[in-house]
């Protein structure tokens, strides 16, 4: 692919990437602790959870939907998996059960939206409360802690010096990028978000594919739950609160439109990295936690304003 094409088709992502690089440059100048191998690996490890949740969110947003329940699903899948893990069940099986819980919650969202004809906002708002309550009921409100080293290795080990959460994140991104760009599931996701009626009239089973999209979102939340549980050596029923907002922010900074039909996982990954680098840098610079919130909010708004400006110029 030549440069002209790259700019034509990925202008939005390049813009976010430029913002990310600019931020890195500024942080390199501002603090000697930023541009070190160990700090950059720390950032990559820290962003992995939000970035993985944002994968499912991106696909949902591409279909012009929204999923508010990702944080609660994460908690629910996490505590179920953790409880199973403590019953001496083989690790892969326990993980499989956790992922199945996430997938099930996601598919339930999808069915409520397609068969129940609920707006995505409402269906997932309900699931947000149900899954959270489920997690609290399942554990009586207590965290489930203490796992085998084999399971914890998912967060603590490295692969070629790269932290395992980062490796898992990259695998999820590669797989879902492939899904979005090389399979008809991806084509249908973009088509549904761009124009659901026209997609239906092109002979596509919109209901089935939309349900699967929400299922995928539940699944990625559960994958994030595996990493979070291994990282903290504990699964908390109150984990993942407000994660939906971080995931939406990463997606939107990455160039997806809440109107649907647009968005890429590359953009979302850059968006998640941008937020992670910003948080890391603000800690390194010892900025107060109150000011950090103001700055992060500003970045989200500016990113979207720039995006809208670019789009207005294109037209």
């Amino acid at each position: 692919m030549n440069w002209k094409n790259l700019i034509l088709h990925h202008g939005r992502q390049l813009g976010t990437l430029a913002g990310l690089l600019l931020l890195c440059l500024a942080l390199t100048i501002a603090t000697p602790y930023f541009l070190t191998v160990s700090n950059l690996l720390t950032v990559l490890e820290q962003v992995s959870i939000n970035a993985i949740v944002a994968v499912g969110m991106t696909v949902v947003i591409i279909t012009a939907g929204i999923d508010l329940s990702v944080g609660s699903i994460l908690a629910f899948a996490g505590v179920v998996m953790a409880t199973v893990l403590q019953r001496e069940v083989p690790v892969p099986l326990a993980i499989g059960i956790g992922l199945a819980v996430g997938l099930g919650c996601g598919l339930t969202n999808g069915l409520l939206i397609t068969l129940g004809r609920l707006p995505p906002f409402i269906a997932t708002l309900g699931m947000m409360s149900i899954a959270r309550g489920g997690a609290l009921l399942f554990t009586n409100g207590r965290p489930v802690s203490g796992f085998s080293d084999g399971f914890r290795a998912l967060a603590t080990s490295q692969f070629l010096f790269i932290p395992m959460p980062t490796v898992i994140m990259l695998v999820v991104y590669l797989a879902c990028h492939f899904l979005l760009t090389r399979t008809r599931f991806g084509l249908y996701a973009y088509a549904m978000g761009g124009n659901e009626q026209a997609t239906h009239l092109s002979g596509i089973n919109v209901r089935r594919h939309k349900t699967l999209v929400y299922g995928l979102c539940g699944l990625t939340s559960a994958i994030a739950a595996v990493i979070l549980t291994a990282r903290l050596n504990s699964a908390q029923p109150i984990a993942g609160m407000m994660y939906e907002l971080d995931a939406i922010a990463a997606t939107v900074i990455g160039g997806a439109s809440l109107m649907g039909g647009q968005g890429t996982l590359i953009g979302t990954l850059i968006g998640a990295l941008l937020m992670g680098v910003l948080r890391n840098g603000l800690n390194l610079l010892e900025v107060s936690s109150f000011l950090q919130q103001v700055i992060i909010g500003t970045v989200i708004i500016v990113a979207v304003l720039v995006d809208m400006g670019l789009k207005a110029q294109k037209k």
Partner: peptide, 14 residues
């Protein structure tokens, strides 16, 4: 048509 999508992808759709 799905207007935001390219010619290529619209033709692929059915």
């Amino acid at each position: 048509l799905v207007l935001p999508l390219s010619i290529k992808r619209n033709v692929s759709l059915p």
